[in-house]
Structures are given as structure tokens and as C-alpha cells.
Amino acid sequence: MKFWQNRLAKLFEDHRRQLVSIVTRRISDRETAVELVQDVYARLMKAGDRGTEEENTKILYASVRNAVIDYHRSNAGRANVMNGILPVQLWQNESSSPQDHAESRQALGALDQALLELTPKAREMFLLHRIEGISNAKLARKYGISVSAVEKQLARTMRHCQERLAAYRDPE
């Protein structure tokens, strides 16, 4: 295993800059690109040697491409969840009826209650992300966890809030 660790470390060292550059171009976020490339390195370290240096290099690049695809899929799913987390009917407008206003207040109350049901860390992370616009990478650094862990926590929080707000959403 020591041989594989040295071999992969050398391979990674030789290609890291180019891999980060490729990922950065595809996702437009250098911090996340660095995280993705590092995650690929960790996964390959566990997977073991695949043969020649050429084969290992191909696997390294293919793994990074797959990580970018997974990242985009994951973001698309999160975007759909995020779009549903605060339904339009939660926000009142000037022409809303008293009934609409009351329903809005009830929905906001349900959202408040849903947020109170979360752990303080999950609630804070969600509010920092949704209200303050703090990136997943910055949240990961703040809490000392991986970007992936932040994404998973935000997804769990959003699902929780959606479930609590289901009664207030427009049936479509």
C-alpha cells in the first residue's frame, strides 16, 4: 500500500494544478474545485493501484470528470429543493386578501417552527446559507467539516422545512 500511496501522491502532484483548473472552468468556483479534486484523491487512495502510470492517470482524470458531473447533478437537485423551500405564498403582496395574509402568517409560523426543530448548528448553517448567501465552502471552513457534509446538512434541513410547509404550498 505504501508503494501506491507514493505513486498516487506523485501522480496527484504532477496533475493537481491542471485538474483544479479543469474543474474550476466547469463549476466556476475555485474553492469547491480544490475540494472536489482533493475528494477524488482521497477516494483513489482507498481504491488502490490500477496498473501502469498511464492507466492511473486516465482513472484520475475520469474520476475528476465524474466528480464534476456528480457535483452538477447534486446542485440541480438542491436548486429544485431550494426553489420549494420558501413558496411564493409565504410572501404577501400589496393586493393580497385578508385570507391570503392570514395564510402567509400561518406559513411563516410553520417555517419558524420547522427551523426551531433543527439543531442550533443546522439552523445557523441554513440561515447563513439562505439569508447571508455564505457559500458551502465557507460554511465548511467555519464548521470544520467537508463541503459535502455541508451540502448534505443543507439538503436535510431543506427537506425538513419542505415537509413542514407542505400544507401551505400551491398544488401544481
Rank of each mutant, 00 (worst) to 15 (best):
Q18M: 07
L116T: 09
R78Q: 15
R130S: 09
N56Y: 01
I145N: 07
L111A: 11
D70K: 10
V64N: 04
E94A: 14
S21P: 00
S95K: 13
W91K: 11
R169V: 13
Q162T: 12
L165F: 00
A107Q: 01
K142Q: 15
K2Q: 05
K121H: 07
A137M: 10
K121N: 08
S148I: 11
E35M: 15
E132A: 14
E53I: 06
R169Y: 05
K121D: 10
T157I: 07
G109L: 12
R43P: 02
Q106A: 15
V150E: 04
E163M: 07
Q162R: 15
V40R: 06
S148N: 14
A155L: 12
A102Y: 08
R16E: 12
G51Y: 07
R17E: 13
R105K: 15
A9G: 11
R156N: 15
A155I: 08
L116Y: 02
A67H: 04
A67G: 12
V34K: 04
T119M: 00
G48C: 00
G77Y: 08
E35I: 13
M158F: 06
E53R: 05
E124H: 09
A167Q: 09
E124S: 11
A149H: 05
R7W: 03
A67C: 10
I69W: 01
M1D: 03
G48F: 04
L111R: 03
D112A: 12
D170W: 06
P98E: 10
T57F: 10
R30I: 00
E35K: 14
N56K: 03
M125G: 02
I59Y: 11
V88E: 13
R17F: 08
H101C: 08
Q113I: 08
S97V: 05
E103G: 06
A47W: 03
D170C: 00
L60V: 02
N136F: 11
K58Y: 03
E163N: 09
L108K: 13
K142N: 11
R7H: 11
P87M: 03
R25P: 00
L86W: 06
T24K: 11
M158I: 01
S148E: 15
D14K: 10
S135K: 08
M1W: 03
M1F: 01
R73F: 00
E172I: 05
S148G: 14
K152A: 12
A149C: 02
A114S: 10
S104M: 12
K152D: 11
E35Q: 15
V23A: 14
H72L: 15
S95F: 11
L44C: 02
V88M: 01
Q18I: 07
H72Y: 05
A76D: 15
W4G: 05
D49S: 05
I27G: 09
S63P: 08
Q162M: 15
D14L: 08
V68M: 12
R43G: 07
F12W: 13
A9D: 13
S74F: 10
D49Q: 02
V34N: 05
R7L: 12
A42K: 02
V147F: 00
K58H: 08
G109R: 13
V81H: 07
S148A: 15
K138I: 02
R26C: 08
V40G: 06
R7P: 03
G84V: 08
